[in-house]
């Protein structure tokens, strides 16, 4: 079985995003970047499935500028077999990403696609669902447990109020939630080995799909700041404040 794992390079999850003074976007110059945490979980799950002998090939794909290749290398160091770099210097929107991934899937014909449920920059939580729709495949989003069999996947999903288990016929798109696994750190020998693994690069324009933006970002602003609060001495003082000043109890 072949699994395709799309990954995205984003701001490191421990770094606080800062809005540019001209409101044109978030300042990413000289900011630490990393693989999107949900993508890491998807890579880890794919590699574990390979280690269990369920999957034979893990193909990593990333869409973005030259540095996206570094993110692909990271995934290869975790255990991916080869990479596809869809080159784009402009920031593509989720619909365009889904269309490009569909084009990649049409070429690669994976048995299933495993990807993060959401990128922590745009916070859209949309590409996996859109990709499944464009391919005409079923989807299992927000996965906390995945069992792959010959022709289907049984997936436990994190939903409002608890968990839901469903079975989807393969091929399908599965998106990873936080508790699917804990991603490994790539070992130094594996990082060295990953340098030899093949990455094929192809410009986004060569896929022949419509990637023109549909949304224009008019401005990016800071959220309203909360006014600084106060420290209270003890529990009694806290209750007094909540009762008389805040009026919430």
């Amino acid at each position: 079985m072949k699994v395709l794992v799309p990954v995205k390079r984003v701001i490191d999850s421990n770094v606080k995003a800062r809005v540019k003074p001209d409101q044109s976007g978030v300042d990413l110059a000289n900011v630490k970047m990393a693989m999107n945490p949900f993508c890491e979980i998807a890579v880890e799950e794919a590699v574990r499935l390979k280690e269990k002998g369920v999957v034979t090939e893990v193909v990593i794909v990333s869409i973005g500028p030259a540095q996206a290749a570094e993110t692909i290398r990271t995934a290869l160091a975790m255990g991916g077999d080869r990479g596809i770099h869809v080159q784009s210097d402009t920031d593509l929107q989720p619909l365009a990403i889904a269309k490009l991934l569909k084009a990649v899937a049409d070429e690669e014909k994976p048995n299933f696609i495993l990807m993060g449920k959401q990128a922590i920059d745009g916070d859209n939580n949309a590409v996996g669902q859109m990709l499944a729709a464009l391919l005409g495949w079923p989807q299992a989003t927000f996965a906390s447990k995945v069992e792959i069999s010959a022709s289907s996947a049984k997936v436990t999903r994190e939903v409002d109020g608890g968990l839901q288990t469903e079975e989807v016929a393969l091929p399908a798109v599965i998106t990873a939630d936080l508790r699917l696994n804990e991603p490994r750190y790539a070992s130094l020998p594996n990082i060295m080995k990953a340098k030899q693994k093949p990455i094929v690069a192809k410009p986004a324009a060569d896929y022949g799909v419509d990637i023109a933006p549909r949304l224009t970002v008019l401005k990016v602003t800071e959220p309203p700041k909360r006014a600084g609060g106060i420290k209270v001495e003890d529990a009694a003082a806290l209750v007094a404040k909540l009762k008389t000043e805040a009026g919430v109890i």
Binding site: I11, K16, A17, R18, V19, V26, I120, D121, G122, D123, R214, L215, T216, V217, L218, K219, V220, T221, E222, P223
Partner: peptide, 16 residues
């Protein structure tokens, strides 16, 4: 809509 865990708000206009 909020982006970056709510650390920024983006105003978007759609052409759809």
């Amino acid at each position: 809509r909020p982006i970056y865990a709510g650390n920024a708000l983006e105003t978007v206009k759609t052409s759809d």
